[in-house]
Simulated assay, not measured.
Amino acid sequence: MKKLEVFDPAMCCPTGVCGPSVDPELTRIASALFLIEGKGFTVKRYNLASEPDVFIDNAKISQLLNEKGPSVLPIVLFNDEVVKEAAYPANDELAEWFEMDSSELSIKKSTNKLL
């Protein structure tokens, strides 16, 4: 089973909508990960602020943080291998890893209008 783990920097929430301005990159990755998880794949996301033990307990993550500091975050593991540092994967990368079409990773906006 394919597994994706995202080790986020310290932040108040993973969606990016709780601060004074919305970070579109956090919104995009949260949406894409939600859709991947909905297809039955294992997706785990860890926040340095609320789950520091997970960062310490993972040897690869701990080593990268010790060598490069917190600017290396986010770190993305795919099947326990580091595939991305200091950035979130693009939808095309996620689609390739999970053998999906990248269009499946975009939430369709409703065209229905409320009267």
Rank of each mutant, 00 (worst) to 15 (best):
S31F: 01
I75N: 02
E81L: 15
I56N: 08
V22Q: 12
D101A: 14
P9A: 11
Y46A: 01
D53Q: 15
I61L: 11
Y46R: 01
Q63L: 15
N79A: 08
T27M: 14
G69R: 05
L48K: 06
W97G: 03
R28L: 13
E67N: 14
V22F: 08
D8M: 13
S110C: 14
S31Q: 13
C12P: 00
I107S: 09
S106Q: 13
P20V: 09
C18I: 01
S106I: 15
K68G: 07
D101M: 06
L73I: 06
N66G: 12
M11N: 10
Y88G: 05
D101N: 15
F98M: 09
S110K: 11
E104A: 13
F34W: 06
P89V: 10
N66V: 12
K60Y: 08
A49F: 04
K113F: 15
T27H: 09
S103C: 03
D57K: 15
E96H: 10
F78R: 04
T27A: 15
L33I: 02
L35Q: 07
E25W: 01
C12Q: 12
D53A: 15
G40P: 10
T15W: 04
C12G: 01
G40T: 05
R28G: 00
P20M: 06
Y46H: 15
I75C: 09
E96R: 12
V17D: 01
V83I: 15
F7L: 08
S102T: 14
A32D: 00
L105Q: 02
E51H: 09
V82M: 10
Y88N: 06
G38D: 02
E104G: 08
G19W: 09
F55D: 05
A59S: 15
I36A: 00
R45E: 03
D53Y: 11
Y88C: 08
A49S: 11
V22C: 06
L64N: 04
S31P: 00
P74K: 08
F55E: 06
S62H: 15
P24Q: 12
I36K: 00
S106P: 00
W97N: 04
I75T: 05
S106D: 07
E37Y: 02
K60N: 14
M100Q: 05
I75F: 07
P14V: 12
D92L: 12
F98I: 10
I36E: 00
A95C: 09
F78P: 04
A49R: 06
R45I: 04
V82W: 09
L105T: 03
T15D: 02
I107Y: 09
E81R: 14
I56Q: 11
I75D: 01
P14K: 04
F98C: 07
N47E: 03
D101C: 06
V72D: 05
P89E: 02
I56Y: 09
G69Y: 05
L26V: 02
W97E: 10
L64R: 12
M11P: 00
A59F: 14
I107F: 14
L48D: 01
G19D: 04
Y88R: 07
L73S: 06
N79Y: 12
M11L: 14
T15V: 13
L64H: 10
Y88K: 07
E104S: 13
K108H: 07
E93A: 13
N58M: 08
S71T: 10
A90W: 05
F41A: 07
E85P: 03
E85T: 13
P24G: 06
K44F: 11
P52I: 10
W97I: 11
F78K: 10
P14D: 04
K113M: 09
